[in-house]
């Protein structure tokens, strides 16, 4: 190389360009990772198809528009599961290993500010969710889904649910060892899949247990989405309130306790 090639010419790229580049890379890493795709795409899709087609668990099928199908009960729950798989499980595992392998540390010395890195992660989660929701709703429509209610309420539920799960996922990734995060995030995913009103209606549990489970973010999200999409509710304030509390607690604790190395 000729003399002068390395002559200093430092400078940060414009902030929007840095965040866009970071979000694009994070999304690419996620879509390239087989285990992540299993969690975010394969499992929700299989559950939606399997439980709609085969009467494994009896579910309430009455909708705002009269008698519906199992898919009308299942789709809101599966959408909630998709949000959890990306914002919580996937993000926790990916971020945990980025922390372990010094990726967060190295990016911390780059011109991208830490809040910019977090913004990029959020953007990447949102892009992934849009792809998931597009796929899952297309499948649901093919299975005869007929949604109701206020789209704005659905959007608000999805955004608050994403905030709540992101906070909890980042709290886990930023405080536990990567292997512990991997194990715990998968275990929580499995437990909440069963006990969070995703495919099994909460009223199948005993009364006290049902009330406690109803306070979980996954239950609030799947119940809220079901209130709107199946039952035509205009704004499920109770579930939105529960998600908002989880979001504030989760993001607050993550901001306080997250360790970058």
């Amino acid at each position: 190389m000729i003399a002068g090639t390395y002559a200093p010419k430092p400078g940060a790229a414009p902030l929007p360009r840095m965040i866009a580049a970071q979000a694009a890379l994070e999304t690419k890493m996620l879509l390239r990772n087989g285990e992540q795709l299993l969690l975010t795409v394969v499992i929700p899709t299989l559950l939606l198809v399997l439980f709609s087609a085969v009467d494994i668990v009896s579910v309430p099928t009455k909708t705002a528009g009269g008698e519906g199908k199992a898919v009308d009960f299942l789709t809101p729950g599966i959408l909630a599961l998709a949000v959890m798989s990306t914002a919580f499980t996937g993000q926790a595992i990916a971020t945990g290993f980025e922390r372990r392998y010094g990726v967060l540390k190295r990016l911390g010395a780059s011109p991208l500010p830490r809040w910019g890195l977090m913004a990029a992660k959020t953007l990447s989660v949102l892009v992934t969710e849009v792809l998931q929701i597009a796929l899952l709703t297309a499948i649901a429509f093919a299975l005869g889904w007929s949604p109701h209610g206020n789209p704005l309420a659905v959007l608000l539920l999805l955004v608050l649910g994403t905030a709540a799960f992101s906070g909890l996922g980042l709290l886990m990734a930023g405080t536990l060892k990567a292997e512990a995060t991997l194990a715990a995030a998968n275990l929580v995913f499995l437990l909440l899949l069963v006990g969070g009103g995703v495919i099994v209606p909460l009223d199948k549990f005993p009364g006290g247990v049902e009330a406690a489970l109803g306070l979980l973010p996954i239950s609030a999200l799947s119940d809220g989405l079901r209130d709107v999409l199946q039952d035509g509710a205009s704004m499920p304030w109770g579930d939105l309130g529960i998600l908002a509390v989880w979001a504030v607690l989760g993001l607050g604790a993550a901001a306080r306790f997250f360790r970058w190395e």
Binding site: T5, Y6, K9, P10, G11, A12, A13, R17, M18, A21, Q22, L25, K28, M29, R32, N33, F97, E98, Y101, G102, V103, K105, R106, A109, S110, P111, L112
Partner: peptide
């Protein structure tokens, strides 16, 4: 900054990661 070890996404290719870091700068090599 060159760390003693790590600092790269385990699923990223070398050229991909280098291009990414270049994008974070105004006048990269």
């Amino acid at each position: 900054v060159m760390l003693q070890s790590g600092g790269v996404y385990s699923g990223a290719r070398a050229d991909e990661m280098l291009r990414h870091v270049a994008k974070l700068h105004a006048h990269p090599l």
